[in-house]
Design a protein around this nucleic acid. Structure first.
Lengths: 199, 199
DNA sequence: AGGACATGTTTTCACTGTAAACATTTTTCC
DNA sequence: GGAAAAATGTTTACAGTGAAAACATGTCCT
């Protein structure tokens, strides 16, 4: 007994030389740290420290810091999409669903300030210049379909594009201004989204 | 002759121990650097180097790096306000003027990407929590007056506040998304601002 | 003239990202 | 099974950063 050589090793008090799944642990540590810090203040060494590993061990799983941040962005984008999709489902689709996705966008930003800001202010890496590979693609596509459903069927592509842009801009701007302390994070303002604003 | 002791000394080949107006020179250097770099990449030492002064000389004029950045923000905010005011004047006020200020906001952001982002993502220092001391106050107040002029006179304060918020959010979101590479910096999109969007 | 003060410099420290060389464990192949 | 190869970790090292402390030099006021 006790001579197994299975992949991950948690029980043993003696920490094994190999971590088991360091990459995942680093990502988790990064996300944890972003709950209490801004992304600028996040250092590779701090992430490594959190996991209990030497600073340069990170480089076995990410070529550089940027790369770690990209992975965190990806995670955040997935979370954003799920939050929006859930909100739309809960609202039952239609115009109400559309408004709900917009509000979910802002609420997700407020709930995950550092991650959201990182996600949005990180220019996508050169190799994903293709717009349908951006990490926010899923969320954007949801918005696009919503706008399409609301516009009259004979609206021109230009009109559609402008509508998508303006809708995204509005929720994104509100999220950013609230995160940056330029607007109060007021629930009343959030719920004004999608209710036929005067502009 | 030649024994004058005037304040600033530029001609002499021998650089005097005292710079003359180091504070202004540092700010100028900071602004110059922001034309080609992002604010995160801006280092105190680089600013000092640009001016030709020792790294720690900066601390005689700014208590820390943040403080230098605040000053740059202030400058950027003034520029933003002036750009908007000029645009409104050129458009002759009214609804067209309102649309023009919104478009000017986005165009200023695109013309001064690093400075604008710094300005907007820098949380105002604690001592100016008072909203009418924010460095964007002038620009915001212009917007507020514009919105007031467009709404029916009996609109409630809540409606007014929501209208201001949504308008600001829209232009700010577009500016940010374009700066961050999430939206193309397309003039056609910018000119869609204020033309009675479907939302 | 001389002392107070402002403003600049040198030195120093802790921290960062990352490259290079080395150590240890796991995997692969005969 | 056992050795060679690959993967994954550590140690060491380096240049760059923001900032504190001690020191130098110039300006200004009485």
């Amino acid at each position: 007994m006790s001579s197994d050589g299975n992949s991950v090793n948690i029980e043993n008090s003696k920490r094994p030389y190999h971590h088991g799944d360091l990459r995942a642990a680093l990502l988790k540590a990064g996300l944890d740290l972003l709950e209490t810090q801004s992304a600028e203040g996040l250092s590779l060494r701090e992430v490594a420290r959190q996991v209990g590993v030497s600073p340069t061990a990170v480089y076995r799983h990410f070529p550089n810091k940027q790369s770690l941040l990209y992975a965190l962005c990806k995670h955040g984008a997935d979370g954003l999409y799920e939050a929006q999709a859930a909100a739309m489902k809960a609202a039952g689709g239609g115009p109400a669903g559309f408004a709900a996705t917009g509000q979910a966008y802002v609420r997700y930003a407020l709930a995950n300030p550092a991650l959201f800001r990182l996600l949005m202010t990180t220019k996508p890496p050169a190799e994903m210049l293709n717009p349908d590979e951006t990490y926010v693609y899923a969320a954007m596509d949801l918005l696009r379909r919503n706008v399409a459903a609301l516009l009259s069927p004979d609206a021109s592509p230009d009109i559609r594009k402008a509508a998508v842009t303006l809708a995204w801009s509005q929720v994104h701007g509100m999220a950013m201004l609230m995160l940056d302390g330029q607007l109060p994070a007021d629930e009343k303002l959030i719920s004004a989204i999608g209710r036929g604003a005067p502009f």
